[in-house]
Design a protein around this nucleic acid. Structure first.
Lengths: 349, 349
DNA sequence: CGTTAGCACTCAAATGCATTGAGTGCTAAA
DNA sequence: TTTAGCACTCAATGCATTTGAGTGCTAACG
């Protein structure tokens, strides 16, 4: 028997009322309150009966016997899936989002940072952005520049969208012709190769072919590996952690600390975002639905962003389980959409 | 009359006992406790009398009339200036610091991040690092590389120690000779010029001289300005904010939030570090000695780090006024010293 | 038969009050 | 000058009481 078969329309409206009210007040909601505040045309007694049913089937729970009800995990889940209507974002806000992103269009890092900031400000929760990684990303160019008798600058240009540099010490200075030769050789071997194909083995092969320059090359190629890895590490940008402290459920420092710990472990957050990216659609993870123990008191709304129909990253908002889902879902969806559009302009180059 | 004239040796020892005890327990200290825990050879009554004197002259205060004493701001100041002995750091720790820094020696950003992390871990407070900026920094090289028909990569190499890149859109593709010409011209004008001298006026002048390429140059030079500014913004790296939540004085979320707000405003922290760098020596700022209102419940220990005798940056630790000054001062001094040494190896190139 | 009113019941939170204990200042004795 | 003794203060603690919002159950109502 599906659990939802028990859910008639009136129960739905009551669950909605309880959830809406609890989301905005953070106080358990009683039957009287609902009868007063929401015009359902039924008496507190009837509401009590319905609430008892809802509790029995697991959508509501009582912190203690003589308190009002609050939504359970299952209740939030039902609310998110079948009840709430995502709240439209005002045109003005929409415009502001777009404008702020446009302004930062120049550099990829800045766009992701700005996105995180926008999300945090709009949602009033903590926000994070997984930087765009493209499976199709290719090494566009690899350049060595002698900047000093003993220093070579390695420049990696990756398409779509980022540039990394690294300084390498060399023992002897290379002549310009030598450098030019190495450059053109490296580019002939590596240009337009997908990053995923560039591994230690390929690089070793190249080093062997150019072994007269092994001196420079070893360090250089090691740097290449590092740079490509380093990018992965850096992939998550966070903002708005402070907002966590505004939430009444985190008034006790203990619980706040658990959330901060959660945010500090990059793995957890980035894993979640990667999952969302792969899933390819907006996701709402409520409390213990996530395996992570510190997540039990939190929910996360996350969405991938898409360029040319391919998800290349994801964004997310983390708040208490009592999260303003309707609004946050709308915001996350909207921001993800704008971000995708902006990036598609930037990355198609 | 100097306030210190009243401070005989016994008073000093009592102030030390009170401060040490309060620093480790976070509880107001009474005369009995001191008599028991510290072997001063005097009775609680005597201690009471001395404490009354110390309170009168402003070194101690009472949270309420029937509680023990805690050090006042002035008390901490005296403790820091005249009483405490900075606590040696174990050789093992010393070695670990050095090794961790050595590992990250490759890239400047990584060194500052690692430094912040080390400081936070050792001190158990929040830590920050002002990235090295050298007044003597010069633009070592400015290179334009065509990476795509419509994209030019601007590379800035600054000595000492960092590289920035930026992508610029161009309307038409430049021929290699043209690019080479621009490159060599720009380098002839800008190479080895101190960053502080590179302003809008100089760049405008150059743009005028090369006005046949104004198309590319405008965007490029604008990017140069942005990059040099952007570096300033990014200058402070922070770590260990979570440690703040461990401190009993921040158990109330309100006060924790004030500190987080403080840390979130980059200006405050970076201003403080810049001051320290300019001052050229270790500084301890206690509570309201700082003008910033949210600092009243905090203290900061900060020290410049020095390359070739010149302070080029600063590091700092922020904790509650009840900070473990002796230990933190030792740590900050030590880390600053190691950082300076590591950087001098990196930057002299 | 679903809905509502009434009522007894529950329990967290707030309130009031006495107790405890760590701490103080003052005074007088050592 | 130091210390012992003593009266005093006051935050914190514990405990009983009250309050009030909320519930479940039952019986009456349309």
């Amino acid at each position: 028997m599906s659990p939802y078969s028990l859910m008639d329309d009136r129960k739905k409206r009551i669950l909605q009322a309880v959830t809406d009210d609890y989301i905005s007040t953070a106080e358990p909601v009683g039957s009287r309150t609902i009868a007063r505040r929401y015009d359902l045309g039924i008496s507190p007694a009837t509401i009590r009966n319905e609430m008892a049913d809802l509790e029995e089937s697991g959508y509501l729970e009582q912190p203690h016997i003589s308190a009002g009800r609050i939504p359970s995990q299952k209740g939030y889940r039902f609310y998110v899936d079948f009840i709430m209507q995502t709240k439209g974002v005002s045109d003005e806000e929409r415009l502001r989002i777009r404008r702020r992103l446009e302004e930062r269009k120049r550099e990829l890092d800045l766009v992701t940072e700005e996105t995180a900031r926008i999300l945090a400000q709009l949602s009033n929760y903590a926000a994070f952005v997984l930087s765009p990684v493209s499976r199709a990303a290719v090494l566009k160019r690899l350049e060595l520049v002698q900047v000093d008798p003993q220093l070579v600058l390695v420049i990696l240009v990756v398409d779509p969208g980022f540039v990394r540099t690294h300084l390498v010490m060399t023992e002897r200075q290379l002549k310009p012709e030598q450098l030019a030769y190495i450059n053109s050789y490296l580019n002939s071997r590596l240009r337009d190769i997908p990053l995923s194909k560039i591994g230690v083995s390929l690089l070793k092969e190249i080093a062997a072919e150019l072994k007269e320059y092994s001196n420079v090359l070893e360090a250089t190629l090691e740097a290449v590996v590092q740079l490509l890895e380093h990018r992965q590490e850096e992939a998550v940008v966070t903002d708005g952690q402070i907002n966590i402290l505004e939430q009444p459920e985190f008034r006790e420092v203990e619980s706040a600390k658990r959330v901060f710990d959660l945010l500090a472990e990059d793995d957890t957050v980035s894993g979640l975002l990667v999952d969302t990216m792969n899933a390819g659609s907006i996701r709402v993870v409520i409390g213990r639905e996530s395996p992570h123990p510190n997540m039990d008191i939190c929910s996360v709304v996350s969405a991938p962003y898409v360029v040319d129909g391919v998800p290349i990253g994801a964004i997310g908002v983390l708040g208490p389980t009592r999260m303003h889902y309707a609004r946050v879902v709308a915001i996350v969806e909207l921001v993800a959409c704008h971000l995708g559009e902006i990036l598609s302009k930037m990355l198609v180059m």
